[in-house]
Design a protein around this nucleic acid. Structure first.
Lengths: 191, 191
DNA sequence: ATATAAACTGACTAATCACTCTACAAATGT
DNA sequence: ACATTTGTAGAGTGATTAGTCAGTTTATAT
């Protein structure tokens, strides 16, 4: 395994467990099996390591998601895939998903340029924007719809982690939750 | 102003801006206008300060909320008050609200005993539990309903902060969002 | 008035941390 | 074969930090 990747994956584990400032770079280096100097060879500063890890993790989730979204035929299918596979990815990669949440609600978010954040959510936003324009969703600000959908996913994730269900139950309840979200956002005139 | 309270309110501001570990106790003391020793006279450790601040802030929100919930006559009124006044309180106390979110998604949450967390949400949970039993809400785990409702509030808060609307628009969109949430959770047989 | 306790101070400390520096090894190009 | 870049190591450094301590002021009780 490539040392840079080893540093990133070790950092992820430790950040989730001890927080950003609670994890010294020295500990990351030791647990990753590299020297202190090597860590700073790949990442100029600790902040750069944190931000790189965020961008990389976000991109992993997005790549997975875009693939699934593209598999949907109707808009509802695409939206369902976005919802369902976000959660499935989260359940399959709990550390990564938690890290994204942790980063999002920390002052480190300010280190990511606004344009990068916008780019991360560009494709999702376009998808939703189209549905608002087409009258599929209620006539509300796209930003609001995006935020509500995302927070539903976050909330569901928290529930899935808190209540350790068998994977059948998980699947079932993810689908139920999608139906609720769809019901909430869809334009009743189109039903 | 009492020194202990001054320390807490200064810590809140700095934690929100720089994060927990990014804020030295020395800085808190200076900005609060007390000596370093005084800070440790009131709070044995920095972690104790953080946790105390969390418990206090959570309690402030809860006290406010319980009062508003009790003013509702029907269950829908109570639930609406919970939803609407959570957001209004958040808009009026942005630092406090952000701090609660920041703490919730940080490893510091582990420092709060599970029973304390349960106690914090006990009354809300009871309210929702009753509505599930009475068939007002869909027949879903109360925990799920609570988590979904709470994440709707979180998401709405993020939206309100991101889009700086005038207070009339804010009021309007909070009410709209409540209607969406209600629609999502309510048992259609009871409509 | 005096004793006792509580509040308060700020210099101090031991530990820790992000990051640097020098040296060496491996790969790569010519 | 040689030169140059790139990767790696780990001891070292200066700054910073949570927490202490010895001593002073203020409040309270008798």
């Amino acid at each position: 395994m490539d040392k840079s990747a080893s540093i990133l994956s070790t950092a992820l584990k430790l950040f989730v467990q001890y927080g950003f400032h609670g994890t010294p770079t020295s500990k990351i280096a030791v647990e990753a099996g590299v020297s202190n100097g090597t860590l700073f060879h790949y990442f100029k500063t600790k902040d750069e390591l944190v931000v790189t890890l965020y961008n990389q993790t976000k991109e992993e989730l997005n790549t997975h998601l875009f693939e699934k979204i593209d598999q949907g035929e109707t808009f509802k299918d695409k939206f369902r895939n976005m919802f369902v596979y976000s959660l499935k990815w989260g359940v399959a990669h709990p550390e990564e998903f938690f890290f994204l949440q942790q980063f999002h609600f920390s002052p480190h978010l300010a280190l990511v340029p606004a344009e990068d954040i916008a780019r991360h959510s560009q494709k999702h936003t376009q998808l939703l924007e189209g549905a608002v324009q087409a009258g599929i969703f209620k006539y509300l600000p796209t930003e609001l719809i995006a935020t509500l959908a995302w927070s539903q996913i976050n909330g569901m994730y928290e529930f899935l982690v808190k209540c350790d269900l068998c994977s059948d139950k998980k699947e079932q309840i993810i689908n139920d939750a999608f139906d609720l979200t769809w019901l909430m956002l869809v334009n009743p005139a189109k039903l």
